[in-house]
Amino acid sequence: MTNGNLPLIWRKFPERYLLQGNRCETCGTCFFPARQVCPNCRRKGKLVQMEMPRQGKIITFTEVFTGPYGFEFETPYFIAIIELSNKARLLSQVVDSPREKIKIGAKVEKVFRKISDIDPEGPIAYGYKFKVVG
């Protein structure tokens, strides 16, 4: 997180800290990140803000050996597409989990972690990651 994009990051705090997305009351679909318009119901849709559940399962995953700037010291690490228990899907790092337990279908739970801390004098970005449970 650099000083230049702080306002952008700050606006995402509810999303990053609380997994705040939204749900269409017309069709019941949950969205993360929040959508402006329900793609199913369009103008008939009614979107309401909601916190996503903290539990989900791994749909697919990969292991990153060459990380981008800011993540190079964390390699190798796992990122996964996670389906939350309300069917919303997101991409997240999977941490604190033994390699053998990271597999398709594995149950995961949200944890609060540092996402980026690259400048010793700059702001720290916090947010969600997931870990395998059970």
Binding site: F112, R113, Y126
Partner: peptide, 16 residues
């Protein structure tokens, strides 16, 4: 604490 943990992330987990 792990590489991506600090006293703030620990505080949040305990508070939750």
């Amino acid at each position: 604490a792990g590489f991506d943990e600090d006293s703030c992330t620990i505080a949040v987990e305990a508070a939750r």
